[in-house]
């Protein structure tokens, strides 16, 4: 997460400004965000299972893109032993696919790095197919068995053309396999966004950051 600290944009603050920005649409001036080509939704849900026993799932979601049409859900389930070793799954619904690949009998969602270009990914986990994120050694190709934060990539079409989105997930790693769903985002039609990308704040919002903002402004001008 170190990279986020040095970025010029504080996502949490931006989300707070969205509310102000909405009010500003009627009030007139000084919106703090740019015309949004990217929509970000803060979620901050703990992906903790509460169901006990094999075959019971806790479902988190659905989380929709653009209000309707395409969505995804997380699921958590206990293994056969009913111990704390869980499984984390992600499934897309509607005209959607998840960046990932098929290996053997399983679909594996990719764990994308911050900044990865979404439009160039291979979207191997089809709609309604269960994407297995982690379940210990049983899923040997899973990219989510180590603790840390990563990004899921989505591709969907709500009828207007292809759109891309990402979801930021922090996982505790095997064998715990719990985690936190932090936020997700999607771009307008055709916006080739990158994993973790959020809207550029307006020049004023950048300056309001103070020293960092002034430095960013000058660097942008120089480039």
């Amino acid at each position: 997460m170190e990279r986020r600290k040095t970025a010029a944009v504080n996502v949490t603050r931006w989300t707070a400004y969205t509310a102000a920005g909405a009010a500003a649409a009627t009030a007139g001036t000084l919106t703090s965000e740019a015309e949004a080509a990217i929509t970000v939704v803060d979620v901050n849900v703990s992906l903790e299972d509460t169901a006990q026993g094999n075959g019971y799932f806790d479902v988190f979601g659905p989380y929709t893109f653009g209000g309707a049409g395409a969505s995804f859900s997380f699921q958590q389930a206990f293994n056969e032993t009913g111990t704390s070793v869980g499984i984390m799954l992600v499934t897309g619904f509607g005209n959607i696919s998840i960046a990932g690949f098929v290996a053997g009998a399983y679909n594996y969602p990719s764990n994308l790095a911050y900044g990865a270009n979404l439009s160039t990914q291979s979207f191997g986990v089809a709609a309604s197919a269960r994407g297995d994120m982690a379940w210990g050694a049983g899923y040997s190709n899973s990219q989510w068995v180590n603790a840390g934060t990563g990004y899921l990539g989505f591709q969907f079409d709500l009828g207007g053309g292809t759109q891309w989105g990402w979801a930021e997930v922090q996982v505790n790693g095997t064998p715990d396999n719990r985690g936190e769903f932090i936020r997700y985002a999607w771009g307008d039609v055709g916006e080739q966004i990158t994993a973790g990308q959020v809207p550029e704040p307006t020049s004023l919002a950048v300056l309001a950051l103070g020293a960092a903002g002034l430095t960013t402004m000058r660097r942008r001008k120089a480039s």
């Binding site: 102000a20 000084l30 309001a208």
Partner: peptide, 16 residues
Amino acid sequence: DVIAGAYRFSDLMLGR
């Protein structure tokens, strides 16, 4: 709009 803008910009700065 200048005065309201000044207060709103101050609010952004306060957030920081």
